[in-house]
Simulated assay, not measured.
Amino acid sequence: MTNSTHVVVLSGEGQHSDPWHPLQETSAALAGVLGEENEVTVVTSLDDLGARIGSADVLAVNASADRAEPVPDDTAFGRLLDGFLGRGGGLLAMHSSAVAFPGLPAWRSALGGTWKPGTSFHPPIGRTLIRKSALPHPLTEGLDEFWIFDERYTDLDFEPDVRLSPLYTHTENGATHRLVWTRTVGESRVLYDALGHDVRSFEAPEHVELLRRAVRWLSPRRS
């Protein structure tokens, strides 16, 4: 697999996790999906991330936070992220990563939208219909809306001057909310996927296909 895309999955632990998301399980499921076509390394500390990120083509962040204030690790992650995106690496951010690294400008800027305490919420987890947006995109070509058992993040807080390309949405309280979107940061591509609360999310074949396509699209090795 020496010529395959190298994906490093940062699986949150400790200050980069929360009591509600089984990150170890979802990181293993994500690694299993992506490992069918790529070389995948799962790390759980910033020291390990720092040692691996230099060879990574795609960084997948599956983390969270149960805090409102930053910690020193956040700043260290911001430096690694800036360097990674500065050389054109691709970023895949999963579900509760919209909650991760609170107060870190580099993270909010990279994603383009994050969870805002007191404003953002999600309806009860359950089987739900995810709708494809009308925006043409190679990641969704040939795919359609699909059913999945998951959470639907709602009323996320978006950067006002950041251009996002929504791929999938859901409807709540009569309004349409972005769930999966892409953007670019310099020469880097970014995809945020609000799905993935637990392993049932990876039982939806359409979600699995989207993630496989995402790595191909995100990788700087793309043709």
Score class of each variant (00 low, 15 high):
residue 106 A to F: 08
residue 88 G to L: 12
residue 151 E to T: 12
residue 120 S to Y: 01
residue 102 P to A: 12
residue 97 S to G: 15
residue 86 G to Y: 07
residue 145 E to R: 07
residue 197 H to D: 09
residue 194 A to S: 14
residue 85 L to M: 07
residue 143 L to F: 04
residue 117 P to F: 06
residue 113 G to Y: 02
residue 100 A to Y: 07
residue 182 T to M: 00
residue 160 P to A: 10
residue 91 L to P: 12
residue 164 L to Y: 02
residue 185 V to R: 11
residue 135 L to P: 02
residue 167 L to W: 07
residue 179 L to S: 13
residue 91 L to T: 15
residue 108 R to G: 13
residue 177 H to V: 02
residue 109 S to P: 05
residue 203 E to G: 02
residue 115 W to A: 06
residue 101 F to M: 03
residue 129 L to K: 13
residue 87 R to Q: 15
residue 171 T to D: 15
residue 90 G to H: 08
residue 106 A to G: 10
residue 176 T to W: 02
residue 89 G to Y: 05
residue 186 G to Q: 15
residue 118 G to E: 05
residue 200 R to N: 08
residue 92 L to H: 08
residue 168 Y to R: 02
residue 199 V to N: 04
residue 114 T to C: 14
residue 83 G to Q: 05
residue 184 T to S: 14
residue 160 P to Q: 01
residue 110 A to E: 10
residue 201 S to C: 12
residue 106 A to S: 15
residue 112 G to M: 10
residue 80 L to Q: 13
residue 130 I to S: 04
residue 132 K to C: 01
residue 125 I to F: 09
residue 103 G to P: 03
residue 131 R to A: 07
residue 116 K to G: 07
residue 164 L to E: 09
residue 88 G to M: 10
residue 132 K to W: 05
residue 152 R to W: 01
residue 109 S to H: 14
residue 114 T to L: 03
residue 136 P to F: 00
residue 147 W to L: 13
residue 128 T to A: 10
residue 103 G to K: 09
residue 107 W to S: 05
residue 195 L to I: 11
residue 197 H to Y: 03
residue 174 G to N: 09
residue 88 G to S: 14
residue 81 L to K: 04
residue 105 P to W: 03
residue 115 W to T: 04
residue 138 P to Y: 04
residue 149 F to H: 09
residue 129 L to Q: 13
residue 124 P to I: 02
residue 197 H to T: 01
residue 116 K to H: 13
residue 172 E to W: 11
residue 191 L to E: 07
residue 153 Y to Q: 10
residue 141 E to F: 04
residue 158 F to D: 05
residue 184 T to L: 03
